[in-house]
């Protein structure tokens, strides 16, 4: 008997009805992420990437289809502390310091933050925010806030990690650094990762598979396998083979 897939969506559809117009956000989306794999989703704005993630997290319910996280329903998986998440928006609590924001998932999962002080500190250092432990979100730059969100997503050592454009507000250099870091952390934890991104190069650098979506209705048009050796290093960004994969994805993205 094989281990259950990390993330499994089968025939998921979702329609939003609001303010007189109806949006078919997802039509018959099926996606399987084997345990320990890294999947990236890419697509034009409004094609339903965030919706896929929100459904997998149990924040929205699908109209049809089925969702399994490590063989469980999203809610059960979340309660068991299986999932970690970094949103498109950092979504920090403005009245909590950096450290206390990173501790939030532990509190929700009824773990004593005091017992994990070292891990929390480690995560803050990992994202390069040493010295800012007691700063409030209002005192940080947009990129720093996103890094807090990433530290927060990793602090529970999640088996399944969801990230919705976690590096959106970072500059190119920091973004590459964080890409390398993320790969390292992911390799170490062996988690199943699902990354929503707008950066083709980022997707190709990090993922085993890149899922390309189109809008109206939101659907998967192609899944591109990326088979570069791991660990991948920054020079890969200028490799011709790397560019070939990127060009192909760009074609799928823009073409029919």
């Amino acid at each position: 008997m094989s281990a259950p897939d990390g993330i499994a969506l089968a025939g998921v559809s979702k329609t939003f009805a609001g303010r007189g117009k109806v949006v078919e956000a997802l039509r018959d989306v099926s996606l399987t992420c084997p345990a320990g794999s890294f999947t990236a989703i890419i697509g034009p704005s409004g094609c339903g990437k965030s919706t896929v993630m929100r459904i997998a997290l149990g924040l929205e319910t699908a109209d049809t289809g089925e969702v399994r996280i490590v063989g469980d329903t999203p809610l059960a998986a979340a309660r068991a502390g299986v999932t970690g998440v970094a949103f498109q928006d950092a979504a920090l609590l403005p009245w909590r310091s950096v450290r206390r924001n990173v501790e939030v998932p532990l509190e929700v999962l009824r773990q004593k933050p005091a017992e994990h002080a070292e891990r929390v500190q480690g995560m803050i250092e990992l994202v390069g925010l040493k010295g800012f432990e007691n700063a409030l979100p209002g005192e940080l730059s947009g990129g720093m806030r996103q890094r807090v969100a990433i530290a927060r997503a990793l602090v529970t050592h999640p088996q399944v990690l969801f990230m919705d454009e976690p590096f959106g507000a970072l500059d190119q250099i920091l973004r590459r650094q964080m890409n390398v870091e993320l790969q390292r952390i992911w390799t170490e934890t062996g988690s199943t990762a699902l990354l929503v991104t707008h950066g083709i190069d980022e997707a190709v650098f990090l993922a085993d598979r890149v899922v390309v979506m189109h809008a109206d209705p939101g659907r998967i048009v192609e899944v591109v396998d990326v088979s570069f050796d791991r660990p991948r290093r920054p020079p890969l960004f200028s490799d011709p083979a790397f560019h070939k994969v990127c060009d192909h994805i760009a074609e799928v993205l823009h073409g029919g």
Binding site: R54, G58, L59, A77, V85, A91
Partner: peptide, 27 residues
């Protein structure tokens, strides 16, 4: 309450009470 913050709590399986305690009251 900021829906992004409540989403975050719910994504970790937080209940209504967790949302109340961690986000809504202070907000």
């Amino acid at each position: 309450a900021d829906s992004r913050a409540t989403d975050m709590i719910r994504a970790y399986g937080g209940t209504k009470r967790d949302v109340l305690r961690l986000v809504q009251f202070r907000g």
